[in-house]
Design a protein around this nucleic acid. Sequence first.
RNA 1: GCAGCGGUCGCCAAGCCAGGUCAAAGGCGAAGGACUCAAGAUCCUUUCCCGUAGGGGUUCGCAGGUUCAAAUCCUGCCCGCUGCACCA
Length: 960
Amino acid sequence: MEVLGQIEEKWRKAWEEAKIFEADPDPSRKKCMVTFPFSYMNGPLHVGHGFTATRVDAYARFKRMQGYNVLFPWAWHWTGETIAGASERVKTGDEDFIRALREVDGVSEEDLKKFVDPACMASYYTEQSREAVKRIGFSIDWRREFHTTSLYPTFSKFIEWQCERLREKGYIVQGTYPVVWCPHDESPTGDHDRQVGEGVAPEEYTLMKFKMDDAYLPAATFRPETIYGVTNMWIHPDADYVKARVNGEQWIISEIAANKLKEQQRKVKTVSRFKGKEIIGKHFLSPLSDRKMLILPGWFVSPANATGVVYSVPAHAPYDYLALRDLQEKPELLKEFGIDPDEVKKIESISMIRVEGFGEHPAVELVEQMGVKDQYDSKAEEATKLLYKKEFHNGVLKDICGDYSGRMVYEVKESLIRDFRERGVSDSMYDLPQPVVCRCMTPCIVKVLEEQWFLKYSDEAWKEKTKEALNQAKIYPESAIQWFLNIIDWLREWPCARKTGLGTPLPWSPGWIVETLSDSTVYMAFYTINKHIREYDIKAEQLTEEVFDYLFYGKGNIKKIAEKSHINREVLEGMRTEFLYWYPVDLRISAKELVPNHLTFFLFQHVALFPEYLPKGIGVNGVLSIEGNKMSKSKGNFVTLRNAINQYGADATRCALLLGGEGMDDPDWRRENVRDVRGKIQGFHNLANSIIETAKEEEVGHLEEWLISVLQHRIKKVTESIETLKTRTATENALFEVWNDFRWYVRRKERTDSKVLKEALEIWIRLLAPFAPYICEETWNKIGKEGFVSLAEWPISDEKKVNLKAEETESLIENVLEDTSNILRATKMVPKKICYYSAASWKWKVYLTMLEKAISTKVALSNLMKELMTDPDLKRIAEKVAKFASQVIEEINMMPSDKKHRRLKVGAVDESQALSEAESFFEKEFNAKVQTYREDDPQRHDPKRKAESARPYRPAIYIE
RNA sequence: GCAGCGGUCGCCAAGCCAGGUCAAAGGCGAAGGACUCAAGAUCCUUUCCCGUAGGGGUUCGCAGGUUCAAAUCCUGCCCGCUGCACCA
């Protein structure tokens, strides 16, 4: 381990000194720009990042070896609320959080003190992570590195330019929408920022406006269609209500509701304050029929829910029925409100929805059926939900429902809400169906956020073009394409600015900061020019819109731009060249969780801003788990990249990650596996060394031909796999399959001193280099090659070196080995002597004839025999021929066509020679004397007359 | 609920799109053996069941279907994982 560690350190330094990963434009070479989404610096990089990034790096290294001019840049994401929030938690002394920083991230006390400044925190993790990225051996051009936010002013200028261009094209618009809002943080509260209420979103209630004296009772409901069945009103007798002027009208609502409405763009002025009981017993009018009805006490009513005013439809709402029944059965409850019990008794349910499986009054039936006791019974909630669902999907509105009579509820719901609104009989308000509490422990409300900035991902034309962009790109794996298409359709306006957190202020609206998923979409273009910005120390002020327009669009007069910006003309041209050379992005890879947001935004924004430079490839991979569990700091199974490298080394970490999985499957990080892979790396090193040290034998025999031949297939497989980002398959082949080839060779040959073996090793090292670059660099050097393997030429599969005969002969030997062992196992014999009999040459003649026929048609025995009998030699032994043919006919008909072609091409194999040559091998394997004969050798030793059962590729076997 | 991915011989994981080479790659684990004074490393064998001659039987989430032939194609079902928006 110690040795491997030193090797890695040595080569990392060598790469750095030789600057081999610094890539500059070179028109004579094809370019390849690969990227990994910059990671968010609220913590150290972990092995999950490592997984995706290693895929990028393996591809980069592969392409570099293929001769491409490869650029793999790197940057850090600091934008957003999270770092600011984390820093805040340090400031306020959140013990759990601080413990995690100490224990998981290994932050020292001294550094911890600095974390009260979010920039220091981000900077700390950036330093740490850069170190890890270097040590794992990613082939990065560090000259282009940066981090986001206004703390990196030149990048901020780029974001400003991006926003301006988007707005100019009409892709950034303003809108007013309701959000879940934390009054303390003064910002929207996303799902992950919540202590309570995951998944809860603002819902719009319809408020039916019932007239009462000089005011309205705006009763809240999700089912305004039930207005036709209203019988009374519910008010909580003990809750606080107000009469308030709301946008010019007098409303009677709960006090809580009045406060809520203030946040929803309503002018609310409280006129008077009172307990609910004060209006109970009064009468009000239905907005549709002028029917006079009674306000009754409803203890189930929550003043915290919507307006705290509820109208009653006992025929269709279990709560309403229950509450009414309670009052009718216990008239004493009415006493304190001075209501005449007879008037309440006279209230009858009004049936207005017909629904299959129920009679006139579904709510009544359901309550009886489920045995709900009263309005306080928890089963009432259940019954309500059930009935709502039923009536919505299957309910038909009855004749008393005016224009909507005879229609299905779900059909008319939307237009009904709109109609009521237009006729002025209803209004609406937002509220949360369940409580939401922010992480800062403040209960959240709904706020209608005014004039927020949105990216207009709802734009149909934009969507269409984005689909085209997707279409022209290579997506790995292909199964992700459909997902992307769905996401493109599904996206709507995306809020692209926030009020708080780190980031770049919107240039035209400084109170707003560009949000994280919006400043991370086209920044790859910034890599191309940041090299110069850093080299020539170009200041943010110099990076005007005109400069960017020139660099990215070639717009404007360069002379004037150079003068105005005080950037050298040559420098500007160099930057322009650099952009033109590197763009578009050839490959971007991320975990699949970014498909519904970042990766799709990445496409959208390139369509908008760089339509000539659309991304060429996108890779999506699974999400890494740790020992089968989701990785998380609180679970204590958080594995940082740094720790992984410390424990197992870079090469082992890389290979273990790559071997974990490909496609969209979730790979799993297992200590056992990594440890083992580390052993393999060590083993490779040892084997390579022994081959290098002993190579001297010049002779090229059958086994050498075989090894070089099979290696050609491995080259092809690895090349194709990595090209299509099947990184697991690629690594598996480069590491294990090639290893097995070498192992078989050594086992058969019983020596490792062939020069061909060393040649084969040269191929192997190169095949493995993208995955385990350090150990390959070391062995490449040891084998005596000049230069870095990182820059060596990728092996090319050479058809001419494929030797089918050698391969088929070798597979013959393997078959014989296997068959012999099988016999030994079945008979439980300990062999003293083994005899092999190779098939007679007439059998080969028949066999090959059959193969040839089988290429085009299914071979029938009768036709075949007719043809064979035209050959006088065969005719003489017709009986034997017929017997043999019938034995192999099934095998031949079942044989897949490429195998038929192979064997035909190879023709007759000299099995006798092959077997004789392998005699000593078999003797060693079975620890017995081995003799080989031809089937028709008259001198053969064959007491059990086995020889005649010999078939091509299937010699007969006799064991004593 | 909507959408995406998946369910393979102890575990991880290929194969499935282009049906026969599939009892089904590779890795791990396990058992046995070689080497060694010993341990480790390495190498070999076995690892669904049966079998005294290279063979046979039962398998690829479940149930059907298509086909000479299905892990692979079709239909229905069951079970996991992930995403679903003001947020990285």
